[in-house]
Design a protein around this nucleic acid. Structure first.
Lengths: 190, 190
DNA sequence: GTCTATACTTTGATAGAC
DNA sequence: GTCTATCAAAGTATAGAC
């Protein structure tokens, strides 16, 4: 039976979008209320801790999504090359080909970095290490894999910045393609 | 004779640092006043247009610095390979090996992007094209040069994000080194 | 669980004394 | 040119009715 009553999880997507578009300080409660369709009272009912708890809830959801869709397949999928290709496709979809920014990256650049430092750190670490693990399974040497993975996560973040700055809607896709070529250079073609 | 009286240009460095560290919305007038040592009255004397004028003045200064130190040498220096190497060294110094972020990149990710879209766009465009020009002069084909240059500007931005996120003070340097290797792969070793 | 009303703080910005 | 005082608006957060 469908509920009229909203759950906390129901408003997380809208909440996430507000933080992504406006950053932590830019996301005012007025704006959040407007975009989620909830009054301040309701927001504080779901998130007694205010904005910080909202941001943490959003980061939880993001962590969960990436863990399920990107990190775990990279670590566990038997066909590592296929997992890498799939992860890049999913990354392109998640970031809407560069039209959507990475909230974790945005927070990393801002002055709120310290407040979320632990989560930011573990998100990037998990991505880098999962990708490195997949690369090793395609036959790349440990050190080279670590190096390529580090480069890949930076490249994705940089591509998001550059695609917005240059207002080039195809830049993100070009970068991911180039990245795929470099990551899978040693493995068999599809 | 040294002046006690401050000039507008005297407070620009401090102003730039506040914007870099806290972003546009995070840089409150209280904070700016504190870091520049000026009261709001003085700030509005120098910048009648308020925060937006302050940010534009900072962007002017940044534009000037990069044009003189990075873009022009890349476009005009006869020894293009040397110019590329020097530009990467200067980039490392400017961003304090990743401890300092790129204000233009920060603004590109934020919701104030629209307000500064023109400047953000031209900064990235100038960097990309100046680098591509240098690459062409080292013997790289036009298309490949454009591709490499686009990748380089994105890589630098991504390296700034990643080095902060992963709290790895040496990541930025590693990325610049790898970038130098890729950019100068075809040209003569130093 | 959601709303309105409200308290209190901070914000960007202005005015006027010196 | 710099300061203090002040303003209106917007900010986060809380209380209480329904």
């Amino acid at each position: 039976m469908p509920r009229i009553v909203a759950e906390r999880a129901d408003i997380l997507p809208a909440l996430a979008e507000v933080f992504r578009e406006h950053g932590y300080e830019g996301a005012s409660l007025a704006l959040i209320g407007q975009r989620t369709g909830l009054g301040k009272g309701s927001l504080y009912h779901f998130f007694p801790g205010g904005k910080e708890e909202m941001a943490n809830a959003v980061l939880d959801e993001i962590d969960g999504w990436f863990e399920t869709r990107i990190f775990r397949p990279l670590r566990e999928e038997p066909d590592a090359a296929a997992a890498i290709r799939a992860s890049l496709r999913d990354t392109d979809a998640y970031f809407r080909s560069g039209r959507r920014v990475c909230l974790v990256g945005v927070l990393a650049l801002g002055d709120v970095r310290d407040r979320f430092a632990e989560r930011i750190h573990s998100y990037f670490l998990a991505w880098r290490d999962a990708l490195a693990s997949a690369l090793v399974r395609t036959g790349v040497a440990q050190e080279m894999a670590a190096s390529l993975a580090e480069e890949a996560v930076a490249m994705i973040q940089g591509a998001l910045v550059a695609s917005r700055a240059l207002q080039d809607s195809e830049l993100f896709g070009r970068m991911l393609n180039r990245l795929e070529g470099r990551l899978l250079a040693g493995s068999n073609p599809r």
